[in-house]
Design a protein around this nucleic acid. Sequence first.
DNA 1: TACCAGGATGCTA
DNA 2: TAGCATCATGGT
Length: 272
Amino acid sequence: MYEIEEGVFEVYSGARRLRLSESSPANESAPKEITVFCSKDEFEGFWKHFFDLETDYAKIVSRAAESGNRFLSESAKIYGDIRVLHQDLYEMLISFIISQQKQIPSIRKCVEALCERYGRTMEDRFGTYKAFPEPEAIAEGGIEGLAGLSLGYRDRYIYESSVRYLREGLSKESFAGMSYPEAKTRLKTYEGVGEKVANCICLFGLHMVSAFPVDTHVKDILYREFYRGEQPFEKLSDKDYVRILEEELGEFVEVQGILQQWMFANEIGTKR
DNA sequence: TACCAGGATGCTA
DNA sequence: TAGCATCATGGT
């Protein structure tokens, strides 16, 4: 999501782009009005599902708001309008491989550079733009074709994962009928995909909202807001965080990935 | 300059 | 299995 001018945004997914604007109503307590600039068919056929508009989040928001945990409650109240998007699987695979050991602005630059080099040039009513690359383009370009994009050691992971993605004909349908733990296990066989990245792909690429990615920010949250023990932060292991999650957020297990998004947004203080 | 980033991997005990 | 070093690169 990019804000290209005040109140005007662009959203990209795969080869698609959507422009939308938000306007503040005269009555400040009324919800903001969103205008999407696309055909009704395109909205109903793609973007409505992309934004997960079929799902009623109100119950989840109110449950979280009344959870009794100060931080979770606050996060739900402030950021409960953030939805877990139905994003493209390959795009999530590559984007989250890039994300490891990088800051968010740097991740964004890398993805843009990758699109610029390997994405197809697309055109809509607002002009031309670059799509997210197809796996074929990355595979054909070879590992050397990824040089100069600030990818560092991740270039090999991106290339090899792209080749495997093609060879196995991977798609969202490949995971149909698979449980969240089964999907995560399969994803972790890909180069450069560990526990955290696999969870992100499950959450954003497969919409498995039980997935709860634990990164550096989430570790801070879990320790500061949920941990009841006496150990110092440095002493906690990954297993400890899994235990904290089960004990403190177990009642939300079927939607905990959604709560993760709200708390993450609250932690980094931006509404993306 | 030193340290850290929406971590993953391979080696060692 | 747990703990640790190492892996590029950019930002602070």
